[in-house]
Write a protein that binds this DNA or RNA. Structure first.
Lengths: 340, 340
DNA sequence: CTGCTCGCAGAGAGCGCTCCCAGGACGGGA
DNA sequence: TCCCGTCCTGGGAGCGCTCTCTGCGAGCAG
């Protein structure tokens, strides 16, 4: 209802001055600014972002493309992103896009290509060339966190190293028959997050001289607790060749594996050592040894990068990009020395 | 870059006609529409939502206020909302707002009050009067799903009935010493979701003549798996007066309780029956008896209501509002007859 | 033939803001 | 005294779209 013209009239200044006073851009005398602010408060003035966008070309809005909301890692990242964007005065527009499909095309072609967002953060999405090109053409900064695909700034942990580190932890404990609960598509898509972790597993096993063991002990399953549960049942179902340790590609799968082991009457870690990746909120309760990553911090970092690309001045400078994000091995009670 | 004027020129029509052809509003001859569409595709025309918003006053954007993304119920609701909004051509702006605090005020006063969203969906938020009034003043439709607070359309299951139903299930099985794992603030805020479920528990216990049992067996904890775990340890820690059944206010807490029971050497359901509420994705894996609700469908319904309030024509008419949303008791292997 | 309706297209205003440019006031150095 | 720089403010164009109003030609009843 109330427009900036009304504020200006009430304050006895021009629209231009009112705009300057309210937005903080340009020189305005302190007394004038105060008068304008009082006038604005008095009539309950609310700026129209649409009008501002129209002339500035900026929407103060960042699009976030994410395949799941309800998986711990993604939820944490999303929360981190949200908080950081809110703090910087940006809105977050959510696009929950799974694997390829018409929904996905619709998001990229219709929603993101439109001028609703200033930039895009893609979390755990394997972007196609067509998708990055589309954003590139619109000159929209792109930051991707995890997931593969060229173009834009890339942020991720070293998934290969994480897979190797987890495996080495088990090897150091004397395990040789180590199984891997992989994510779906780990084999067919080696560039993906779970593909890389699988490679790390294989490398570490090969380096220790257990390459042949490794190949036989990989099962792919959905990266959820039930996925880990059924995958583990498969892995542990043959009493003769049962592994003594399992490296699960995510903590949620590891939880399922713990439960599956117990269901089979195996004790953890007595009969079976289990390690995961993520640093899940529930890991402590399960006593799970894991490679922690910090999804909330990763989300906040992605926002820092995006703001930087948008030319916002940041309080703290960006850490050197290119370097993989930090991880940390946290040993709990789910892993122990191999039985002899 | 390319504006609608360029499209119009290329197609040999006026801006007005090009706008009509592209937006589908108003009469345009089929041949003309086609010519405009070809022209638009040729120069890669992309409409500016900001300009459209400026004149129509509609942003095609709905704000969603939600306290958690990483709790199953909320994640599911969010996914349901997202999908439905996307299908209707709306964007979803996410505000992840926890309990009261300056962040929360900022969202309501700055973000939501601004003209960025056409409507607001609040999920599981206990809105203050000030907050609803603020939206009301801006004439923004408000739909709230779960959570308390006056104003706007309200959608929710009958939480009191759900609590009673879960308790009655245990009573029918012959349990009398039934404990309740409640959510934080269930006692102090009886209007809240977990407050209502607690009341339902007490009512059912009182009706069965076990009121005194009930009072002594309520523990409040965070509505997460670790919360349920520690809460259950507390409940089960006194061997003398150990309950034979537990009603957990959410499935996630029930999972934690199952784990706690096993940790204490109790079998479920042999020594302890456990029931939850939610219909969590993992309930089947845990064999958990639960009162299912359908958060994804709830989210979609909230969107239907919002679109209706925004005057969009809906394919299916709204079900009669005011009626509580559906729930269903699903019996699995975590509950059985009380030991005698 | 007249007068009306109806389908379609064009002209142009105007949504609310920002920003460029111009100009006034004031002060200090030449 | 004059000129120039600095600080502040106002005028006004214009961002890209939608929508109302108007006009025109075709079809049709009287």
């Amino acid at each position: 209802m109330a427009a900036i013209g009304d504020v200006a009239r009430l304050a006895g200044v021009s629209k231009a001055t009112a705009s300057r006073a309210l937005s903080g851009r340009g020189h305005v005398a302190e007394s004038t600014r105060h008068r304008v602010e009082v006038a604005a408060a008095e009539i309950g003035y609310i700026a129209s972002p649409a009008a501002a966008s129209l002339v500035t070309g900026r929407t103060m809005n960042v699009g976030v493309v994410i395949p799941f909301v309800n998986r711990w890692f993604f939820g944490e990242v999303l929360e981190g992103i949200e908080r950081a964007l809110l703090g910087a005065g940006y809105d977050l527009t959510l696009y929950n896009v799974g694997s390829a499909g018409q929904d996905r095309d619709r998001v990229f072609d219709f929603f993101l290509a439109r001028k609703r967002v200033d930039a895009v953060i893609a979390v755990g999405v394997d972007l196609t060339e067509r998708e990055t090109a589309s954003l590139d053409r619109r000159e929209k900064p792109l930051v991707s966190l995890g997931g593969s695909g060229a173009g834009g700034a890339r942020l991720s942990i070293d998934d290969r190293a994480a897979g190797a580190l987890a495996t080495e932890h088990l090897l150091h404990l004397g395990h040789t028959r180590i199984a891997h609960l992989a994510g779906e598509g780990a084999l067919s898509n080696p560039e993906s997050v779970h593909g890389c972790r699988r490679e790390g597993f294989l490398e570490a096993m090969a380096a220790a001289g257990h390459a042949s063991e490794a190949d036989a002990h990989i099962v792919e399953a959905e990266m959820t607790m039930p996925g880990g549960y059924t995958g583990a049942l498969q892995l542990l179902g043959h009493p003769g060749r049962r592994p003594s340790a399992v490296f699960a590609v995510s903590d949620e799968m590891a939880f399922g594996a713990i439960r599956a082991a117990e269901r089979l009457g195996l004790t953890v870690p007595g009969d079976l050592s289990i390690i995961g990746v993520d640093g899940h909120e529930y890991a402590e309760m399960f006593g799970l040894t894991t490679i922690e990553q910090y999804p909330g911090a990763q989300g906040r970092l992605a926002v820092d990068v995006v703001l930087h690309l948008l030319g916002e001045d940041l309080a703290d400078p960006l850490p050197d990009s290119g370097a993989p994000l930090p991880t940390r091995l946290v040993v709990r009670s789910s892993t122990t020395a191999a039985p002899r």
